[in-house]
Amino acid sequence: MLDDLDRRILRHMQVDPAISIPDLADRLSLTTSRLTRRIEKLETLGIVRGQRAVIDWQALGYAVEVSLRVTLDKTNPRAFDDFIAAARDIPEVIEIQTFLGRVDVRLSVIALDMPHYQQIYRTRILSLPHIADIEALMHVARIKSEETLPI
């Protein structure tokens, strides 16, 4: 599906996502129109979904990260849909993942400090619908956080 040129384009875009089209075209020895067509093709195929800014939430003062493993009351057929819809409305929930197994959902929650986390937990998290069990894991260190793919 991807040829060598597509892979080279993707590698460069991963390393320097803010690179301009003309600069990337120069690095790849392509014309800007050919590079633009290739990038548009990668977008059409759903391989490139756009560019975004990666913001360091710790630099903004968020010092606490907690991973919550949630088991839902699956006797309610709307448990997943209701829970996820409500969890999306909590700004401090920065990631929601669903699983098959004992744990149904994992939430990543950030907070400014422990009192802020306790306030979020007590007023927002515990009011989420259909929770049967919840386990909190306090984040200590991020050893590897890489979004670059081995292309």
Rank of each mutant, 00 (worst) to 15 (best):
P129D: 03
K74F: 04
D133F: 00
V54K: 13
I21P: 03
L5R: 14
P150D: 15
L107H: 02
T36S: 11
E43K: 14
T148A: 10
I120L: 06
R34V: 15
E95K: 11
D26Y: 11
R34A: 15
D73E: 08
S127K: 06
T123W: 01
A79H: 05
M114V: 05
R49G: 13
L107I: 05
A87S: 03
P77A: 11
E147K: 14
I9Y: 09
Y117Q: 00
D81Q: 03
P150M: 14
V140S: 09
F80W: 10
M13G: 10
M114A: 00
Q118F: 05
T148L: 12
F99V: 08
M138H: 10
I120Y: 01
T32H: 13
D133E: 08
Q97G: 01
P129T: 02
R142A: 08
R78A: 05
I143R: 06
P22E: 13
D81G: 06
L60A: 12
W57C: 09
I120G: 01
L126D: 01
M1Y: 08
V64N: 01
D3G: 14
G61W: 02
V103T: 15
R38S: 06
A85G: 12
R38I: 03
V109K: 00
F99K: 11
D113I: 11
D133G: 05
L30N: 12
D23L: 09
Y121W: 07
D104A: 08
F83D: 01
P77C: 12
L107P: 01
H12I: 09
G46N: 14
V140T: 10
V48S: 12
H12M: 15
P77M: 08
E135G: 03
I21S: 08
G46K: 09
V66L: 02
F83S: 01
S67F: 07
F99Q: 12
T31S: 12
L126V: 02
A85N: 10
R49K: 15
E146G: 09
L100C: 08
V64E: 02
L30P: 09
D16E: 15
E147N: 15
N76V: 14
F80Y: 13
K74T: 11
I9W: 09
M1H: 12
D16W: 08
K74N: 10
I96K: 06
D56L: 07
D81T: 05
R7Y: 05
D56I: 07
L137K: 12
E95H: 09
N76W: 10
I39C: 01
R34T: 15
P129Y: 02
I131K: 00
P150R: 15
A86M: 08
V103F: 09
I9F: 11
T31H: 07
I47W: 04
T71E: 02
V93W: 00
